[in-house]
Design a protein around this nucleic acid. Structure first.
Length: 264
DNA sequence: AACACGGTCAACCGCCGGAGC
DNA sequence: AGCTCCGGCGGTTGACCGTGT
């Protein structure tokens, strides 16, 4: 904000006072796209210097990754993507870039924004902390199964299979020593709206599952706990009354439940 | 019409770790 | 070993826009 000019971590080149900040212009975008097409998307400081853009390398990198990259996907987060975000966040927490690797074309920034503006809003509405076990369980036990139902309701059988493979879950965090190898290749030079390709969660880790596979039918008829889905009645609020108690108060008022139904 | 408010999202920041010298 | 540079990450900010009063 205020003291942009002198960052003690940065070398104090005399051009520092000349560095541009703020929104990018179309002209800057065009210059950056041109340079990246020639030099590749690495060596950002070199690109920033030699392109004549009065931007930092970091700023160039961010602009490219979040906006100019040809395979960046725009538009609303789909139900399937919502499911993936909830699922992967339950595994990894705020590892946005890692989560983004499994949502082709989506950026870590976009997922982070989605989480903060949509998911945290739900927590706020329920007056519980987004990082609380209560909220996490609510996501797993209520919202994710609901999402699957909605995905099924709107989908072809092929997509149902996709969803089923999505929730075939190792139940374990990814081995940090095992670099992520998303099962898709970037779709360069195809402007968005390519067929969405999800990476089955079963492929997330080479060190696979200790827990039983979770199938779509499991989800439809049950709730997830730490070790798998448990059967639960599907008919209504009354069935949920063991899930959302804070200090003896059941957070699942009719109002909040239907509010959430509308949101997801 | 003007203002307040809340949601969204692009772009920034500081921090950290790896590479190279 | 220690330093510098750079890229990547997660957290935060603020401009913008739509909606309500």
């Amino acid at each position: 904000m205020e003291d942009y000019e002198r960052n003690s971590n940065s070398p104090s080149h005399e051009e520092d006072s000349d560095v541009r900040k703020g929104p990018w212009t179309e002209e800057e975008d065009a210059i950056l796209v041109n340079f990246v097409s020639i030099h590749g998307d690495a060596r950002w400081n070199h690109i920033a210097r030699s392109s004549g853009l009065r931007r930092t390398g970091k700023s160039c990198r961010l602009r490219w990754l979040n906006y100019l990259r040809p395979d960046v996907r725009r538009g609303n987060i789909t139900l399937e993507e919502q499911f993936m975000i909830l699922k992967l966040h339950s595994l990894w927490g705020n590892r946005w870039s890692k989560i983004a690797q499994y949502l082709p074309g989506r950026t870590d920034n976009e997922i982070k924004n989605y989480w903060r503006t949509r998911v945290q809003k739900q927590a706020k509405h329920l007056r519980c902390d987004v990082n609380s076990n209560l909220f996490k369980e609510t996501m797993r036990n209520v919202w994710m199964p609901r999402l699957v139902e909605r995905i099924n309701a709107q989908s072809s059988s092929a997509t149902c299979e996709q969803v089923e493979s999505m929730i075939t879950d190792p139940g374990q965090p990814i081995d940090e020593s095992n670099p992520v190898e998303p099962g898709f290749a970037p779709h360069h030079h195809h402007h968005q709206q390519q067929q969405q390709q999800f990476v089955p969660v079963s492929e997330l880790s080479a060190t696979s599952s200790n827990s039983p596979a979770e199938t779509l039918s499991d989800v439809q008829g049950g709730v997830v706990n730490g070790s798998g889905y448990e059967p639960v009645g599907q008919t209504g609020l009354g069935e949920f009354n063991d899930w959302g108690c804070v200090g003896g108060d059941n957070m699942w008022t009719d109002e909040s439940f239907w509010f959430l139904q509308d949101q997801f």
